[in-house]
Amino acid sequence: MKISTIIRVLVLVLLATFIVMPQVFSPVFAPLTRFNAPAIYTQTSILSLTLSHLAIVAVATALATVIAVGFAILVTRPFGEEFLPLSRAVANIGQTFPPVAVLALAVPMLGFGTGPTLVALFLYGLLPIFENALTGLTGISPSVREAARGTGMTGWQRLIGVELPLAFPVILAGIRLSVVISLSTATIGSTVAARTLGEVIIAGLLSGNTAFVLQGGLIVGALAVLIYDGFVALEKLAARRMGRA
């Protein structure tokens, strides 16, 4: 446990340094370049690309969370129960759509830039969150549901006071899945001119500069690992608070 914590801190420090001052790492990446090509991507500042990347993912995930959890709540209410099988089927089917295809199909409708990327990430992020919210909301033990009704809570009080808090760790796991997928998928957004870290990777692919590909990939990978870990820690904390430890 100790060692893994040290590694995490180390990764965080390296990542932060690289994002702010990429030139420091120039010697590390230099052996990977050929014909004296630059070792570090400088066309756009890595910092601004990272921030833009994170912002796109954050906005898409936040929207996806609101909509997906909202839908999951609707279909688990008595009046929406009719749509439960349909929504399950759609979620199941939707997940088979490759993210690249979602992105590619969004371009013609929304043009180039950040728009289609946002839409693709939003749509693709919906499914894991919806799926998990549904699992969380329907997985509450019958005796707890019964007790909530029996103590005289109104539907609204049951939702806010019992169902959502108990489903929270599971919903959080869904958001985590969605964020990690989105972080990676957002790089593809740069093929349609969204400002993400994919720009670095694609520049590397186009000019045959492995150093660019590597640094772009490493930043996104490290971000994903750290955010993933952060979510897992949050989930553990939440699960303990929910008495599921």
């Binding site: 005796s143 007790a147 909530a148 103590t151 109104t154 808090p165 108990l166 929910m242």
Partner: peptide, 30 residues
């Protein structure tokens, strides 16, 4: 119904305690 239930105690098999609330908060529900 919800007002009625607040005036009637209800205890069930498997206790149905809210796992995310401590003992005091559980007892304090109604």
């Amino acid at each position: 119904p919800y007002q009625l239930r607040r005036q009637i105690g209800y205890a069930i098999q498997g206790h149905g305690l809210f796992p995310h609330h401590d003992v005091a908060r559980n007892i304090a529900t109604v």
